[in-house]
Simulated scan of single mutants.
Amino acid sequence: MPALDLKTNVLVADPKAFSLEFSKYAAETLKKPEAYISVNYNYSELLTFNSSFEPAIILTIHSLDNINPKANEEYSKKFFAFFKEKLGVSDERGYITFIDPGRANIGYKSTTFEALWK
Results as ranks from 00 to 15, higher is better:
I99F: 05
N72F: 07
G102D: 02
Y75D: 11
E114M: 14
T111W: 15
K84M: 06
L46T: 03
E73L: 14
Y95I: 01
K70F: 11
F98N: 14
E114G: 10
F53S: 05
N72M: 12
E74W: 02
S38H: 12
S110F: 14
E114K: 09
A56C: 05
G94A: 03
F83I: 00
F98I: 06
E28T: 13
S90Q: 10
K84C: 11
R93H: 14
E54H: 14
Y25D: 12
S63R: 01
D91S: 13
R103S: 15
T112C: 10
L59P: 06
R93S: 10
F83M: 01
E21G: 12
P69M: 07
I37S: 05
R93K: 11
I99N: 11
Y95T: 00
I37M: 02
G102K: 02
Y41A: 05
I58E: 09
G102M: 03
K24W: 05
L87D: 13
P101N: 13
T60P: 09
A26R: 02
A81R: 04
F80W: 03
L47P: 05
A27F: 05
F79T: 00
P101H: 07
P69Q: 09
K86D: 05
S52N: 10
L47H: 09
A81D: 13
H62N: 10
L46A: 01
F83Q: 06
K32G: 08
G94Y: 00
L59W: 03
S63C: 05
K32I: 05
G107K: 05
G107F: 15
Y75W: 01
P101Y: 09
N66T: 12
L64H: 10
K86C: 04
I96W: 00
F80V: 02
